[in-house]
Design a binder for these strands. Structure first.
Length: 531
RNA sequence: GCGCUCGUAGCUCAGCUGGAUAGAGUACUGGUUUGCGGUACCAGCGGUCACACGUUCGAAUCGUGUCGGGCGCACCA
């Protein structure tokens, strides 16, 4: 709709025009302050310009009214236009709000180390990434979801050691000294038991077999990670393993040319020249590559695979890492502009109003799977999607278990269920509903119809600005409009029943489509709360 | 100390490519259809948009500075 209006304006005025939503719907469907910016160039008062522009739209079928108010230009779409658009959407529900974009995007997210199950902090980045992925898919981008598995380096050795000690302490009742830095947590119980079955007790005592144990364990941990993500409706297209990348290191190093140099027996990347705080070591004196080396090879591989755009979602604590990776990308001869790094901020939990501290060492980490069990995948996804990803977030578990309007996901689901209930009580046939006209329904219904048809713009906006909360906000307000409409207007048994139910179908379609983009399935009926 | 980021209602958060009286939920107070699920709806209360200066016809939004919070500043990943 907006594109259509924009195009008309561009034609008339000869430039790109900012369209906004009027604060008050009585002003119209769209508005623009364009006259203010034209005022200077034309040396005329904004009021007069707006008046002139308004009258030039008089004979358009798209608008029923265009008027100038205090320099603003307000547009009201015609019933005819809205009704046609709605009918098209209903007869092509799977195409509603879809587009064809010609861009290949690689989206990397989560990428948590395979040393333990995902915790609540990972969940935020996971939900954010998956929501962007769904939006992009819907908009027609050719997008790939990728998980980078850091299965090399110290933390993997540590995993092997941690299992050995955990097993000896818990399975074999030994008293062992557990160093600070080792991993703890319940998941080690299962791993220890499985390891004992597979390898026998000896493996917990044999230092030379730590590596073997670790390599087995990280794959087991990845299985847990993938399953937990699946429970949240999150799936990846590809997994890239860090351990498999280093074979390519020599070639990649040469490719960076002057970006790489040797000093003090180590190999460095000249990242300072590209905006980093200082140069970084990529190969140590003992010739072991650093983590950065792996990431360089990985990004080289990404670019060699040839996408138009790359998005990485990282935890906010990695923000200092961005300049060095971009520097590497430039030395590799690629356009660092194509690499977009989005940060997912910290999450803090409140329990009974008190901050709850997590610590890996203490093993009291709040696991993502625990939260899913507690409040459900839908509520978790919704709450994370509805907060801007780059601000720190605090949330209280109790809030999201409630089943009333204080819990937005519940409120939206109820709106959708309400529509289904009404449809099931209809006294007219589906055919009558489909062929009925959406005209002459009155002010309230027109408003609701317009709101429901805004979905395509919202999806586009949410993706291009990477602000997925625009979608959740939209769904909340559409649900509110529906609930209000339901309260105000009786539908079943009235003369306008078929028309009104058609309107509900449009609203239902937007709710359902919007929810599915959040990875949430719309419900047809609400379960009564079990006391 | 340096860098990034945030500071909007009692609380949790939107709004930030500058635009019409700053929004929602929650909390609190009071109400609601002789009707389609009241798991809903309405109204009231509540704001010097951290502070100061600047740019502009116009600033929560842009710029500079101050104060305050978070994160980062590894040859760890």
């Amino acid at each position: 709709m907006k594109q259509r209006v924009s195009a008309l304006l561009r034609e008339k005025i000869g430039r790109e025009v900012v369209l906004e939503k009027p604060r008050d719907r009585s002003f119209g469907h769209f508005a623009t302050p364009i006259a203010f910016s034209l005022a200077k160039e034309l040396r005329k008062s904004p009021m007069i310009i707006a008046d002139e522009l308004a009258s030039s739209f008089e004979d358009s079928d798209v608008f029923s009214k265009v008027e100038a108010v205090k320099g603003y230009l307000n547009f009201r779409l015609s019933e005819e236009f809205l009704a046609q658009y709605a009918s098209w959407a209903l007869s092509n529900p799977s195409d509603f709000a879809k587009q064809e974009k010609n861009q290949k995007i690689l989206l990397e997210f989560v990428s948590a180390n395979p040393t333990g199950p995902l915790h609540i902090g990972h969940a935020r980045g996971a939900v954010y990434g998956d929501t962007l992925y769904r939006l992009a898919k819907h908009l027609g981008y050719d997008i790939t979801a990728e998980y980078y598995v850091n299965d090399a380096g110290n933390q993997i050795d540590l995993l092997g050691l941690s299992i050995q000690l955990h097993a000896r302490e818990n399975l074999l009742d030994e008293t062992v000294e557990f160093p600070e830095s080792y991993y703890r947590g319940e998941y080690l119980d299962g791993l220890s038991r499985d390891a004992m079955e597979k390898f026998g007790v000896e493996i917990f005592y044999d230092e030379s077999r730590q590596k073997e144990l670790a390599l087995w364990a990280k794959d087991e941990v990845m299985k847990i990670v993938v399953k937990d993500l699946g429970d949240l409706n999150i799936f990846f297209d590809t997994f890239v393993y860090e351990s498999g990348l280093y074979a390519d290191w020599d070639r990649v190093m040469k490719k960076m040319g002057s970006g790489i140099y040797e000093k003090d027996g180590k190999v460095w990347i000249a990242s300072e020249a590209k905006g980093d705080e200082k140069d970084r070591v990529v190969v140590r004196e003992d010739s072991r590559p650093t983590y950065l080396a792996g990431d360089i090879v990985y990004h080289n591989q990404k670019f060699e695979r040839g996408y138009d755009h790359y998005i990485n979602i990282w935890g906010a604590d990695h923000h200092g890492y961005i300049p060095r990776v971009k520097a590497a990308v430039e030395y590799l001869g690629y356009d660092a502009q194509k690499l977009e790094v989005l940060l997912s901020q910290m999450v803090s939990l409140l329990k009974d109003g008190e901050p709850y501290k997590m610590s890996k060492r203490a093993g009291n980490v709040i696991l993502m799977s625990d939260i899913v069990e507690e409040i459900g995948a839908d509520a978790l996804r919704f709450i994370f999607a509805s907060k801007k990803s780059d601000t720190a977030l605090e949330f209280d578990l109790a809030e999201f278990k409630k089943q009333d309007s204080s819990n937005p996901i519940f409120y939206i689901q109820y709106a959708h269920a309400r529509i289904q209930t009404l449809l099931s009580k209809a006294s007219v046939s589906r055919e009558d509903i489909n062929v009925s006209s959406l005209k002459n329904l009155g002010e309230n219904a027109d408003t609701l119809l317009f709101d429901a048809l805004l979905l395509p713009e919202v999806i586009e906006d949410a993706f291009t600005t990477r602000q997925v909360q625009k979608l959740t906000d939209y769904l909340k307000s559409l649900a509110a409009s529906l609930h209000k409409f339901y309260y105000d207007v009786r539908m079943i048994g009235t003369d306008d029943e078929a028309k009104l139910l058609k309107l509900l179908l449009v609203v239902g379609l937007s709710l359902k489509t919007g929810l599915s983009l959040l990875g949430i399935e719309a419900k047809d009926r609400m379960e009564k709360e079990a006391e």
